[in-house]
Amino acid sequence: MATTEPSAAPRPPDAGAAPLLEVDDLHVEFRTRDGVAKAVNGVSYTLSEGETLAVLGESGSGKSVTAQAIMGILDTPPGYVTGGAVRFRGQDLLQLPEEERRAYRGRSVAMIFQDALSSLNPVFPVGWQIAEMFRVHEGLSKKDARARTVDLMDQVRIPAARERVNDYPHQFSGGMRQRIMIAMSIALDPDVLIADEPTTALDVTVQAQIMNLLADLQRERNMGMILITHDLGVVADVADTIEVMYSGRIMEQASVHDIYGAPAHPYTEGLLRSIPRVDLKGQELSAIKGLPPNLSRIPEGCEFRPRCPYAQQICHDTRPPLLEIAPGRFSACHFAQEVLEGDFDNAEQ
């Protein structure tokens, strides 16, 4: 096991060759009184510098849990990582002792949460909370940390940053609070930024501003960004690659262009059909029938089978693995090719 100084910026020996962030066959389960809920079941993806990876899925699909496992902020108990690896430039973070792992948080991998009001500490001024990053990680003096904080608040476009450093979270609007979260997360110039539904709690107009800000910051700093969302509209403009998660597993992985052009999984297809569209105004909005499976009792065979319009006997018998169906395109469907080509009727008989 490679060990690094906890205080120095962690850089394992083979930093050059390894991908920026690699999640490899990750398994997470929640052990509750009512049984074991398998929240993440073999998720793998890689993220490189400057790439934006969107993780899509309904509530309970395991997208946030995956992110928490990457950050090492899973609530344990009841949550446990039961298998797999999370490699940052080749270093498996899951194997590190807590104190060494802590050095990666905020500095190498940072995270933005959905609800900025509850995610910011209500009893400390926002400036204090941002400055804490510099003071604890870099040992800066109060004065220097404060100067950097004001600077940072300017960068995330908070008006009158100098006057507002000593204000408390409840004194800001929702959009401004999310900007403070963002400022805090990029304070140490992390290589990877995980944004867990960063705009879900915001008004539509503010959503766009925040997404633009994130996109700009990512471009300037060449960060790898994991954007967790259930909003396909948000994804289209900013993401490079999309992972569609369902029931703790990746159903489809492809570039944004490919997925929006022609989905290769019935679940993705259903998601895309459920986006409200101006040209279909007045018509009934299409929804995926049924509910996501109970994670304590994931069905045999394909997880999506009970809700899938194309389900066959084979879907009942065998769980489809995630296979490459075209260069750079992966789908976990027995009939991926048929769905992709839109001629599903041929597969039916």
């Binding site: 807590e98 104190e99 802590r102 949460f113 995610s119 500490n121 604890v136």
Partner: peptide
């Protein structure tokens, strides 16, 4: 201890004591 802002503090890389 279960609140969101404590999770944020951990995600910020703050030592457990802090």
């Amino acid at each position: 201890l279960r609140s969101d802002y404590v999770r944020t503090a951990t995600a910020k890389g703050m030592p457990q004591k802090r």
